[in-house]
Simulated assay, not measured.
Amino acid sequence: MLRLRNHLFSGVRAAFPPHHHHPFSTTTPAPSPARFAAEEYLVATCGLTPAQAAKASKGLAHLKSPANPDAVLSFLAGAGLAKEDIAAGIARHPQLLCCKVDKTLTPRFAQILSIGLSPAQISRIISIVPNIFVAPSMISRLQFYLSLLGTFDLLHFALKRTPYLLGQKLEVVKPNMALLLQCGLTASDLALFSKVLTSKPERVKEMLACAEKLGVPRNTGTFKAALWSVHCVGHDSIGAKMDLLKATLGCSEAELALAVRRAPQILRMSEGHQY
């Protein structure tokens, strides 16, 4: 009898293994947790465009829920940052949504405030350099450039032209800065030449030498225009550009050289660069 009972129960166990839901059970299996839809969140909650969200969502693939992104957005909005600036910052650096509010955002925001920037100004900075929150060295560089340039508007202008300016070590920037100042440029001029500041010193010296070869002496009012033209065209392309202008304008080499000394900006004609 016992053998018969065991045989019957073994048949039942074989038909309905313990890890499978019994077909006659009234209990419902627990649903699997919903997956965090990063791309949808970036569009609906953060204000990114679908194209921006598709690119940014790759940096958020590890997130399981919107809890931390919600906390980050709440902090930034409560600190006075504009929604459009937050969206621009997230599009540039989506990992901003992964920062810890208490351990990272709060102390770093306070540190930036302490150098004299208002929440509205910080908002504009975050739209360009959002990773400043995760790189403390950038805050000290921000303070350096604010002191150097003298106004927030010039600082903002420099960062818009060169977003990676705060990522460059000052050991590289300061020698270039000294070279430019020795040539008669002012501290405020450096905002325009922010990309030059991040170049290798050898390249900056080549640019300065090329500007001098155009016949424009250093420490003159037109030297800045000559240097900017060399920067835009490329010091190794100036010769070809001079030949092109000579052919286009139908002038002699001497006439062109005189024109360039008087108005170096003609070298940028038809180059599509900003004047």
Rank of each mutant, 00 (worst) to 15 (best):
V43W: 05
A44V: 08
A51R: 12
A44I: 02
L60G: 03
C46G: 01
S32I: 12
H21T: 13
P29R: 07
L48H: 02
A38P: 06
A53W: 08
T26P: 02
K55G: 04
L60F: 08
E39L: 08
F36A: 02
S57Q: 15
A37H: 08
R35T: 15
S32V: 12
A30Q: 12
H20L: 13
C46Q: 03
A15S: 12
P50K: 01
P33W: 02
T45Q: 14
P18F: 02
T26F: 09
K58V: 08
S57M: 11
A56T: 07
T26H: 08
E40W: 09
Y41Q: 03
A44E: 13
R35G: 00
A51P: 00
P17F: 00
F16W: 08
A51I: 08
T28S: 10
P18Y: 07
A15Y: 01
E40K: 11
C46M: 10
R35L: 11
S25N: 03
P29D: 09
G47W: 04
G47F: 04
T45S: 09
A34R: 11
H22S: 00
T27W: 12
L60K: 05
A56F: 05
F36P: 07
K58C: 04
G47H: 06
G59R: 13
A56L: 04
F16C: 02
T28V: 14
G47R: 06
T28C: 07
Y41P: 04
K55F: 14
F16K: 00
P31N: 05
H20I: 12
A54M: 06
G47K: 07
T28G: 00
A37R: 13
